[in-house]
């Protein structure tokens, strides 16, 4: 298994560290040909306007849209959530998104930096982290410590989308098929359970890598 990291701008390294700790190989994706070697893609936090522009300038938007349409699993955090959503509110007029998950997302809907926060959230269906619990299967899952930075706010959830966690009534972790998005930054926590969800999606699905 090889997980791609969209490496145009943003917090790429922390995701690489989390995936390395899970024992999976990673590949930084900056050009279309890099996509051919990955089974899934992480779209990191950063500035979604910048990343969206660079997707066009690197001629990566269409090839990535095609892989996502073929069902490649993906994890989008913060800006990555905005990029994967079907509708972006408060974005730039020329900002494009992939529509890989049926959500309407408001950029920076949780506010500016002074409103950025960290909090413990409860995530539905997370297996206990074996590092923390010694792998006891019936151990109550611990809350996930989530870091929200100028975070996007989900304002509409499509019928096929599962909401796995909410904060004050707003969905902050959602999944549709193999596409997982969070408005917070699991890569800034020591907890690997959200990244584990992506690996499970890859293990469950048929390979979507293009034939050589």
């Amino acid at each position: 298994m090889k997980i791609g990291l969209l490496a145009l701008q943003g917090a790429i390294e922390p995701h690489a560290r989390s995936l390395t700790r899970l024992g999976v190989a990673t590949l930084e994706v900056r050009r279309a040909e890099h996509l051919d070697d990955v089974d899934a893609l992480v779209l990191p936090g950063g500035e979604s306007t910048t990343i969206s522009m660079l997707l066009e300038r690197q001629e990566l938007f269409e090839p990535l849209a095609a892989r996502l349409a073929d069902g490649m699993p993906a994890l989008g955090t913060c800006a990555g959530m905005v990029l994967l959503a079907s509708e972006v509110l408060d974005g730039r007029s020329d900002q494009r998104s992939f529509g890989a998950i049926d959500l309407s997302v408001r950029r920076n809907g949780f506010g500016r930096q002074r409103d950025s926060f960290e909090a413990d959230i409860t995530v539905a269906g997370l297996r206990p982290d074996p590092d923390r619990t010694g792998g006891e299967p019936d151990h109550e899952p611990e809350p996930f410590h989530a870091v929200f930075i100028r975070a996007p706010l989900v304002e509409r959830v499509g019928p096929d989308v599962e909401v796995l966690a909410s904060v004050d009534g707003a969905p902050v972790l959602c999944r549709q098929g193999g596409v997982i998005v969070s408005s917070f930054h699991p890569e800034l926590a020591a907890d690997l359970r959200i990244h584990q969800l992506l690996l499970s999606a890859v293990e469950r699905g048929a390979s979507t890598r293009p034939p050589r």
């Binding site: 701008q9 950063g46 930075i149 930054h185």
Partner: peptide
């Protein structure tokens, strides 16, 4: 964390 998000920019 916000500084992390500005990397590569």
């Amino acid at each position: 964390g916000l500084a992390e998000m500005l990397k590569g920019g």
